[in-house]
Design a protein around this nucleic acid. Structure first.
Ligand SMILES: [Zn+2]
Ligand SMILES: [Zn+2]
Ligand SMILES: [Zn+2]
Length: 491
DNA sequence: AGTTGCGTCGATCTATTG
DNA sequence: CAATAGATCGACGCAACT
């Protein structure tokens, strides 16, 4: 009986079956991955709605409870402590990471959202939800890659804090000594003092309005540009910011490209002439989705990689426990401040305390205008033109004092502080003044003791990315990998 | 046009170690 | 004292926003 079928035939058929199974499994995995990406995109709209709703609720509650500050504090604190999943914030991108087993919880969230899907997303969401469930089983197997997910909860309350210039003069110097002794508790109480000036009623509305323009940065793994490549529009003609200036070209500039441009060197093969028929449909789809990918202009930086490759780094596990104390610092930083009531420092305190990158620059508009030098895309021809000065070296704005030239008027304005000595940004904790807002933001780590930047080579932690950069340069011979978590590391 | 906020580079200060 | 490495900050580039 069995002799009628030669052994090798049996073997062949078995192999065939196995191969087919393997192929179909691979196909399924590919499809699943595709579905996940789709889901990420389609989810955005719903997340925004949920966000708005939650913010509204929180604002309302805060407005009610504002008379009794401690109550409001406790309330918000409890909200934070009851977040279903601990967010781990990336200081640089503002993105949240989830460790442990992120997929399960996130999936529940996703699938509960299925009850109210937007019309255009309904099908894909349902489909993806089913796919995701099946994927979870796979994901939970040991050694399987965990897909980073992000949530909006836990980040809302920290967003949208305005930077307010400190106009009142603060007697500094004497306070410098406080730096080392101010702990988190003291920072909190300090912050409470400022907070007492908040006008919650006035602010809740504007906060909400701001949120409407806010989107959470959504990082999609990408391999290259995904911009809609269009020929430069004639609208560009109407934009000529440099018309009243003698455009000056720095001869070295065109050839002396930045690292970023080096990274984009592919694009330099096709200067200017990026035709619309070069558009790749897939890329176009990605870019026109509800989420706008934040192009990491800082991706040139070779010691810290915001790119997807790093998201999968096992060191992410560090962040889970490190995020434990995160919420404590930010107790009552709900409302925005008004300049007229809070005056100077209050706004900066909130920003100061927010402690993570606010991703509210993520627009929804389509980036139709593409740089022919580097293929970076912009929503408006004005931005494109401004951007292209990076390549051309045009610097229409010059300092009347020292003659230094700048590509944007804003650079010049900042630069003027060098001559005027103006330092409008004041640290509320030590009174130190800064001419540049970002320097004040950075300065905060002096007081908070946060060390979110971790060298994955040796595990040493740093308060600033700069420190890590130097560390890598000096100790690991320019090694490029680093990890950061958004949490203070209090020993 | 002006503003804002993120980001980086390079310089200097400071503490530690041999 | 010199070398080393971390901490801090001034200055400015960039791009998205008002
Ligand atoms: Zn360009
Ligand atoms: Zn300070
Ligand atoms: Zn290291």
């Amino acid at each position: 009986m069995s002799s009628s079928v030669p052994f090798h035939t049996q073997l062949t058929s078995i192999m065939e079956v196995l191969m087919n199974a393997a192929v179909s499994e691979i196909c399924e995995l590919v499809d699943d991955g595709y579905a996940v990406l789709h889901l990420e995109i389609s989810r955005s709209q719903k997340e925004n709605d949920v966000l708005k709703e939650r913010l509204h609720i929180m604002e309302t509650r805060n407005a009610h409870g504002h008379g009794k500050k401690s109550v409001g504090l406790a309330h918000e604190h409890s909200i934070r402590n009851h977040l279903p999943v601990k967010p781990v914030l990336n200081l640089e991108t503002g993105e949240n990471r989830y460790n442990g087993s992120p997929m399960g919880k996130e999936l529940n969230h996703l699938c509960s959202d299925e009850e109210h899907p937007s019309k255009e997303n309904e099908d894909s969401v349902k489909q993806s939800c089913a796919v995701m469930k099946s994927m979870v089983k796979e994901m939970r197997k040991p050694g399987c890659i965990q897909i980073k997910e992000e949530r909006l909860e836990g980040t809302i309350s920290l967003q949208n804090y305005p930077m307010i210039k400190g106009e009142s003069s603060v007697e500094s110097g004497a306070d410098e000594d406080k730096r080392d002794v101010i702990g988190h508790t003291q920072i909190d109480s300090l912050f409470e003092d400022y907070d007492s000036h908040i006008n919650a009623d006035q602010e809740s509305e504007s906060t909400f309005q701001k949120l409407q323009h806010t989107n959470v940065a959504h990082h999609v793994q990408r391999q290259g540009y995904s911009g809609l490549w269009t020929p430069r529009s004639t609208e560009t003609d109407s934009e000529d910011p440099a018309c009243s200036y003698a455009a000056e070209m720095s001869p070295t500039r065109v050839t002396a490209h930045t690292k970023q441009q080096r990274q984009n060197s592919v694009a330099e093969e096709t200067l200017f002439a990026v035709e619309s028929h070069n558009v790749k449909p897939e890329a176009a789809m990605l870019d026109s989705g509800p989420y706008e990918e934040k192009y990491q202009s800082s991706s040139n930086d070779n010691y810290y990689d915001n790119d997807s490759s790093n998201d999968l780094h096992p060191q992410n596990s560090i962040s889970s426990e490190a995020s434990e104390n995160f919420g404590n610092i930010f107790s009552n930083s709900q409302e925005n401040m008004r300049e007229n009531t809070a005056r100077s420092k209050v706004g900066i305190v909130q920003r100061y305390m927010a402690g993570h990158t606010i991703q509210h620059r993520v627009g929804k508009r389509e980036k139709r205008f593409v740089c022919g030098f580097c293929r970076k895309s912009f929503t408006c021809p004005k931005y494109l033109q401004s951007h292209q000065r990076v390549h051309t070296g045009e610097k229409p704005f010059s300092c009347s004092q020292c003659g230094k030239r700048f590509g944007q008027a804003g650079y010049l304005k900042k630069h003027q502080n060098v001559h005027t000595g103006e330092k409008p940004f004041v640290c509320p904790l030590c009174g130190k003044r800064f001419a540049d807002s970002s320097n004040l933001i950075r300065h905060k780590s002096v007081h908070t003791g946060e060390r979110p930047f971790i060298c994955i080579q040796c595990g040493e932690r740093f308060a600033a990315k700069d420190n890590l950069r130097i560390h890598l340069e000096r100790n690991h011979s320019g090694c490029s990998s680093a990890e950061d978590v958004m949490s203070p590391s209090i020993p």
